[in-house]
Amino acid sequence: MSVLPMRSLLISSLLVVLAGCGSAYKTLQPAGGNRNCVEAFRPVFGSDLYKAQVEVAGKNLSGLLLIKTMEDGSTRVVFSTETGVKFFDFEFGVEGGFRAHYVMKKLDKKMVVNALRNDFDLVLMNGLGQGADRLMRREYKYYHGFQKGKKTAWYVTDADCAALQHAELGSRRQLLVDARLFAGEGKLFSGGGQAPDSVSIRHHNFNFNIALKKLDR
């Protein structure tokens, strides 16, 4: 192979790689509209039990996840095996606070706890404050952005803000986590003071996925 085609191949490969590294949010355009509408999609949990499937680094883990709203308004999220051995017990405060009441030794690593905290913060719509900090759009999807430190929680709706398409947690350039909430029979979750029937959480920067399905107790 001559030097020229070789160099072209290298350049085109680099371009492909660089395009892959491009910001996931670069194509978002500022949009006008109601910045408070996603509040209606906040799930309301009483004491709801979910069957949980967790896939982490190619390994499967299953168990029961209890989400309970306490009298003081905080939310407790407790994950245990089917046979009753507890993995973790987290408390999410009304103002965005967080406390790990218990974490099994094997899971008790800062990265794991932070990842789980971010995931449930995103699903519970915890600590969002009043109204979105930014409202952006890409084609027919509207991105309601809430700043969370260096990251942004995005709640993606249609133009009328009638349905929550999905939620995302992103850094400035990268999509980190997406969460999808369903009302049952595959219908998009529309809030209405209910708890979702199923939830799927997918991490994009490492192999870690959570699927929840509500149980009739």
Partner: peptide
């Protein structure tokens, strides 16, 4: 099987 979460006053049966 009854899993009692004492601080949550919750029982998973």
């Amino acid at each position: 099987q009854e899993k009692n979460l004492s601080l949550l006053s919750e029982k998973i049966v």
